[in-house]
Amino acid sequence: MTRQELDAALARLGLDVPAGERDGIAAAVQYLDKMTARLRPAGGRDVAAEPAHTVAFPKA
């Protein structure tokens, strides 16, 4: 993620983040990028592989 993308993402969420804190987030972006890269296993996943979260009706 570039700094420009980061700024755009924060703006999209309506967040007003001071410059110093943005620098801190920008420094962490590389770790986020690595995490998301690890989300894509080689060969993909079986289409039937469900999320851990499934729909549950409200108790009422």
Binding site: R12, P51, A52, H53, T54, V55, A56
Partner: peptide, 20 residues
């Protein structure tokens, strides 16, 4: 759609999808 999405839910407002 994203713009119309409510983001002012209370802390206790859980998603419809919960861990199982």
């Amino acid at each position: 759609m994203v713009k119309r999405l409510r983001r002012d839910q209370g802390y206790a407002d859980e998603p419809a999808n919960v861990f199982s």
